[in-house]
Design a protein around this nucleic acid. Sequence first.
DNA 1: CATTTACGTTTACGCATGTAAACAATAAGG
DNA 2: CCTTATTGTTTACATGCGTAAACGTAAATG
Lengths: 151, 151
Amino acid sequence: MSTIVVNPHITDAEWEVMRVVWANIRVTSKEVISTLEEKMDWKQATTKTLLGRLVEKGALNTEQEGRKYIYSANIEEKEAVISFTNDIFDRICRKNVGNVIESIIKDHTLSFDDIQRLEEILEMKKAFAVEEVDCQCAEGQCDCHLHHHGE
Amino acid sequence: MSTIVVNPHITDAEWEVMRVVWANIRVTSKEVISTLEEKMDWKQATTKTLLGRLVEKGALNTEQEGRKYIYSANIEEKEAVISFTNDIFDRICRKNVGNVIESIIKDHTLSFDDIQRLEEILEMKKAFAVEEVDCQCAEGQCDCHLHHHGE
DNA sequence: CATTTACGTTTACGCATGTAAACAATAAGG
DNA sequence: CCTTATTGTTTACATGCGTAAACGTAAATG
């Protein structure tokens, strides 16, 4: 048994549970339940269901402790976030990735440190920058193709 | 009737349809169908269903032309992408927004222009940067709170 | 004009998801 | 030891979503 799920899909509701586990490293269902009872106004049963589903899909580990479990995350938050962000970039033309990043930066508050760090990354990225990012879109799903006139 | 849906939720499958409409500005179902028959290997019926649902939820406009429709987008791609990206940032601690942007930048190919543009934006952001972004997470869902010890 | 074709509308159906009650088993308390 | 509280497991159920067939009607074609 135990198919190792590399990258289980975490739904919105499940994510709320994951956040509690990520924040606490090791938690009991009780803690998760009370946190979400408060934040989400969920009944205990709801949180229990979500914990169960997350264990089932391999996102959480359990460690028996008496008759209860200690839950811990089996996937890292960073990993989960990245897989989430990748979904966005799969929805758009690669040529627009820069624009999207731009609008994200515009829309969020950053610290001086953040800005400096991003500047450094950009500086490094110059070594790998291209003249023009190429469109990977399917024909008909992006107007980049309109530039290829003639055949 | 006609509740104006400001920001309808667009699912993965629907997004494929939207991309075709966005790329072509005005399209017939025939064009959408043939594009997605090719890219997604969808039966005509599938695309028809999605077109119907998108019209229903206000994401697409229709304009009668004889006995057929010309479909056009009722929401902008940029708008849709932004609402999608916001979902991510609602899932994480605001303190980590910078890190996520960092990893997005690292993971994608950018053009020299992109980089320059981003550098300019960052430069401007400095005027509004903060010493430390503050955590908006609910108690128990983020370890930032651990720093507030004492009360 | 009868038949085929094209295109929008209805209906379908299984699985995922959000939300939760009911149940079972065990520990804790009186 | 019996009752109650705790905690995990089962079952439930409406809605959303992916995927598509069937149907109705109008247009095109022979």
